[in-house]
Design a protein around this nucleic acid. Structure first.
Length: 574
DNA sequence: GCCGTTTTCGGCCCGACTGTTTTCAGTCG
């Protein structure tokens, strides 16, 4: 029988939600399935054990019916209800809903009237001008759908966090200088530090919304205007990124900022809470009947709802509201708390900076130490170090350390070989201060083998840090198949640090797993995986993800002093 | 389908904008 993991269950529940929507079922029922999909994806602990214990329905949003269906799925590998729903639509039909401007209602009409069941068929039908006569459709709709298809093809509709942030910050800075604008902030998923985004949201306090909106639509890099209303303006830039600007009065600004920071789910939970308190919350204010309850900032809004301030990164409806109510929110790590970083490459392998340059750069950033990590000998593509070159680098490091200043730790990013062994004999591994073990090959191993490979690497007494655990490349490659629960459990037992790789293409561990790892008691290192001096600053993205994963300074190895780090590495070895 | 300090039934967050319509449905966040 096929093993059914959380991700599979989550995916199937999500698909049921979509299919129910397409069928025109009760929208709350569809929402219940999609909510359960989210819940299952991030549920701590082993799913099969929870099913066996019959405690599924203790999770929020999972009642008797969903509990029964998930049990069937986990125990038999399939779900009859899902299969029945699937056969009533052609394969791949739900993919249509990823096109901007096309929701379940219109997709259903397209299927019933024209038999359109795939993105390709939709494109063809638009080009043949066959949509315009359908009820609720017109020439504009047809045009929009064609644009939506083209955009999806070009950009997959998503952007890496730093790319989008840089563009949004540039526009924000220009708007801040506009005479009609008193305050403006980046909101939305960028403010929440999501690893990839579909658009950038800006919220502005303005004296004149029309001229402020025109300041956005008039920018030279605007490719087209998507929406232009009295308060809301949306444009698509040449590079494909969509910018949404919301203009409001000064007094409304905190409410608008809260609303447009989201997430949608966090907002929904806040509003439900407001309702229970006899209040109404929307993007214009907090109201008791007709009476408006003024708040000067987000903190006062949360306070009015009986909650401590919730940092934007935590606003994902993953328990932050309950924690805020109980006064149990974590004291989130900040960038200034990092006292050094590990996992930095030099010219010896595939980096561009020398040890001296890196040491100076670390001093400029106020760091006490730097962990040097070139590639190991099997990484031919990256000029991995033969044993002789390792020993030479140790001598260079010793010489630099004698000069004082920033302390250099001798490290290596060793490949985990196909069988789980590390890439040097023990007597060489013993000479490093710390060892980062990473997978760079054989991504396609079956899950059981991949898991066994990682577990063997964790058992190696010289492994101090496990590098980019899932191996994913954002917007490019999924992580390899591996039992992450088992790996996390072994990391706790073996006192191996898990890397939070801060390279914006990786951001691996994912924040959803990070919280789980923290709760399990794992120590985390925020590592830049830098290949040049500029790459050192990628740790700021890692800090954003760490905050999103509920981490405090105490959960992170590189918030400690050089002496404490040396002590940790030493104890690990003994 | 879930859930309960109004409720085991009847609610379920709330609003902007577009395109298609003559007052609103659909989509999005």
């Amino acid at each position: 029988m096929k093993r059914v993991d959380k991700q599979t269950v989550s995916h199937i529940l999500e698909e049921i939600g979509l299919l129910l929507e397409l069928k025109g079922e009760n929208p709350f029922k569809s929402r219940a399935y999609r909510r359960a999909a989210r819940t299952i994806r991030t549920l701590p602990g082993n799913l099969a054990e929870r099913v066996a214990a019959g405690t599924l329905d203790e999770a929020p949003g999972i009642g008797a019916a969903l509990s029964e269906k998930i049990t069937e799925l986990v125990e038999t590998g399939t779900l009859a209800y899902h299969t029945e729903l699937l056969v009533s639509f052609p394969p791949g039909f739900s993919e249509l809903l990823t096109i901007a401007g096309l929701g379940p209602k219109k997709a259903k009409i397209l299927y019933d009237a024209l038999g359109i069941a795939s993105v390709g068929e939709l494109e063809y039908a638009c080009q043949e001008n066959r949509l315009a006569d359908l009820p609720g459709f017109g020439a504009k709709t047809q045009e929009k759908l064609l644009e939506g298809i083209a955009r999806r093809r070009r950009y997959q509709g998503r952007f890496l966090f730093p790319e989008a942030l840089e563009i949004a910050e540039g526009i924000r800075a220009d708007l801040a200088k506009h005479p009609a604008v008193s305050r403006v902030a980046v909101a939305g998923s960028l403010r929440r530090c999501l690893e990839t985004v579909t658009d950038a949201d800006l919220v502005a306090a303005v004296s004149d919304a029309e001229t402020a909106g025109a300041a956005l639509t008039g920018r030279p890099e605007v490719a087209r205007i998507i929406e232009q209303g009295p308060t809301k303006t949306a444009v698509q830039l040449e590079g494909g990124l969509q910018i949404d600007l919301r203009c409001v009065d000064e007094t409304v600004y905190p409410f608008a900022l809260l609303h447009f920071t989201g997430s949608k789910e966090h907002n929904a939970a806040l509003r439900a809470r407001a309702r229970r308190l006899g209040l109404t919350l929307n993007e214009y204010g907090l109201f008791k009947g007709n009476k408006s309850l003024p708040c000067r900032d987000e903190k006062e809004i949360y306070a009015a709802l009986g909650l401590a301030f919730i940092a934007p990164e935590l606003r994902e409806d993953r328990g932050e509201i309950a924690a805020a109510e109980a006064g149990e929110l974590p004291d989130l790590v900040s960038p200034e708390e990092l006292r050094g970083v590990f996992h930095v490459h030099t010219v010896a392998s595939d980096g561009t900076a020398t040890l001296e340059e890196l040491t100076a750069a670390a001093a400029e950033r106020g760091w006490q130490y730097l962990g040097i990590c070139d590639h190991s000998r099997s990484a031919h593509y990256a000029h991995g170090l033969e044993v002789e070159r390792v020993r030479r680098q140790w001598q260079e490091i010793d010489a630099l350390n004698e000069a004082g200043g920033v302390r250099l730790f001798k490290g290596i990013e060793t490949d985990i070989l196909a069988d789980g062994a590390l890439d040097y004999p023990d007597e060489v591994l013993a000479g490093f201060d710390f060892v980062v073990a990473s997978i760079h090959s054989y991504f396609q191993l079956p899950e059981a083998e991949q898991t066994a490979r990682l577990l063997r690497a964790l058992e190696n007494p010289y492994t101090t840090i496990l590098g980019h655990l899932t191996g994913r490349l954002l917007l490019a490659r999924d992580g390899y198949a591996v039992d992450l629960e088992a790996v996390i459990a072994a990391a706790v037992r073996r006192k191996v640090v898990l890397e939070l790789n801060a390279n914006p293409h990786r951001l691996d561990l994912d924040w959803r797993l990070l919280k789980q790892a923290r709760d399990a008691g794992v120590m985390i290192a925020i590592n830049p995986d830098a290949h040049d001096l500029k790459g050192l600053d990628d740790v700021r993205y890692g800090v954003g993800v760490a905050r999103k994963g509920w981490l405090s300074a105490g959960d992170i190895l590189n918030t400690r002093s050089a002496a404490e780090v040396a002590d940790w590495f030493g104890r690990r070895r003994s």
